[in-house]
Design a protein around this nucleic acid. Structure first.
Lengths: 245, 245
DNA sequence: CGGCCATTTGATTGTCATCAAACTTTGTGG
DNA sequence: CCACAAAGTTTGATGACAATCAAATGGCCG
């Protein structure tokens, strides 16, 4: 199911968010995403993985042997209850890591929500590498604490915000997480479906749809297509997200 | 407001969860909590802090100069919405760190929910120390990833579980987070109020109270006092928590 | 063009919040 | 040690927001 190729060695040289000529990946590479200059060691232990929309890279309960860094595309991370209820705990984009958590088995699943490319590492290899490169570990710790802060925000959203507030918050957060910046300001790329938004926001599809319609009717946003929105009144959106309306 | 004393140097030697003769702290010390042997350097930059129940150690929005490790007692970490709605993002106990997140200002508040003692570090000092001791950073990264996994569980709880499932989940998780183990199995120490439980579970006080009463009526738990419970049917509690009932 | 799936819109229901009051525990001072 | 006040908790009645059930519309791909 996973299409594998070896990682071109000069990928370590990529620092910008432009296209990499060798491996064709858009956006950030592992190296640039960590802000570390010389990570030649990473190439040696990395495999390149291509996923089509919907394909899984991590399955809850399986042995946690790999660790991934997203090169392009988007990924959903989620947990399931026995009866099938799903909570998406995060959307990940180019530059993000998946599977860092220690532990015998994966405690979550991860799937591409659009075609994606990734770098794959064996955890054992990666741990060995880290021992020689403290800068790598520092960068990872910084990332982990950022993710923890984001997780706390999401808990506030899920525990205490109304449906309308959750939707507004989501529209504000999404563009600053996604490294693919659209040309126009206020333009939001929405690579996920309504069902995925709902499972991320702790709502149903219908409530998400109604909430977006309400924002549209209020003149706060425009729905350019199912996957593209335009924020006409960002200050209004911000006020709604914080419950000040 | 904060009572400060210098940290006795031999605190670094503590490895068990017993009482420290020198500084009087119960449970884990910084050192034992990280599983690192020789952390003499930490003592040099640590201050000892005592808090009475309700006192704050971190205030949302203030400059993030300090970092804490809890020596004894319990702490609530929370975020507020402008209109006062509160989400408690976690309860912390002896051995836990608070304030690791990078960033100019604290993005949350933290207060003691019962009398507590802590070790306080200046972030700048602590960063300098880390540079010389990679083992410390490794331990912190491990902790951070554990906390991330816990945060994902909490998102599942807040986004997709019913009131009854949330309460059952909470009663199952609490004892394994709290290092103070009661003598009897199935005995749960509940150092927080119903209001705090509610703000952690995304519910109201009334719903929490009703849920506990329901568990009691069903013969799943007994309420020994407001702050002590006994689980009579753990398998039942687990089934409820996972939505299998 | 037709079929399928995702999304939107509408009607109704249910769970939990809100409002309200009684009860219990805790701490304080006489 | 008891009496009282204050805070926290439980229990009850009602209401609101979002879920569920249901149907129509719209977009996409063969």
């Amino acid at each position: 199911m996973l299409e594998l190729r070896s990682l071109p060695t000069d990928c370590a040289a990529r620092r910008s968010d432009s296209v990499c000529a060798t491996c064709g990946a858009r956006a950030f590479s592992v190296c640039s995403s960590l802000g570390v200059d010389d990570l030649a060691g990473l190439d040696a232990i990395a495999e390149r993985v291509s996923l089509k929309s919907g394909e899984a890279l991590i399955r809850q309960g399986e042995s946690a042997v790999h660790l991934f860094n997203i090169t392009s595309g988007s990924v959903r991370v989620y947990k399931l209850l026995p009866d099938g209820r799903r909570q998406i705990t995060g959307f990940l984009f180019a530059g993000d890591f998946v599977g860092l958590a220690t532990g015998q088995d994966y405690a979550f699943s991860a799937e591409a929500i659009e075609d994606a490319t990734l770098c794959r590492f064996r955890k054992a290899d990666y741990r060995a590498l880290i021992r020689e490169r403290p800068a790598l570990e520092t960068a990872l710790l910084e990332r982990a604490t950022h993710e923890l802060a984001a997780a706390q925000n999401q808990m506030l959203l899920l525990g205490r915000k109304t449906a309308q507030e959750r939707i507004a918050s989501f529209l504000l957060d999404l563009p600053e997480r996604d490294p693919i910046r659209p040309t126009e300001a206020g333009h939001i790329r929405v690579p996920m479906t309504r069902a995925e938004m709902a499972d991320y926001l702790g709502l149903t599809i219908e409530t998400v749809s109604r909430g977006l319609t309400k924002l549209k009717t209020a003149g706060v946003i425009r729905l350019l297509s199912l996957n593209e929105m335009l924020v006409d009144r960002p200050e209004r959106l911000r006020a709604i997200a914080e419950g000040e309306a």
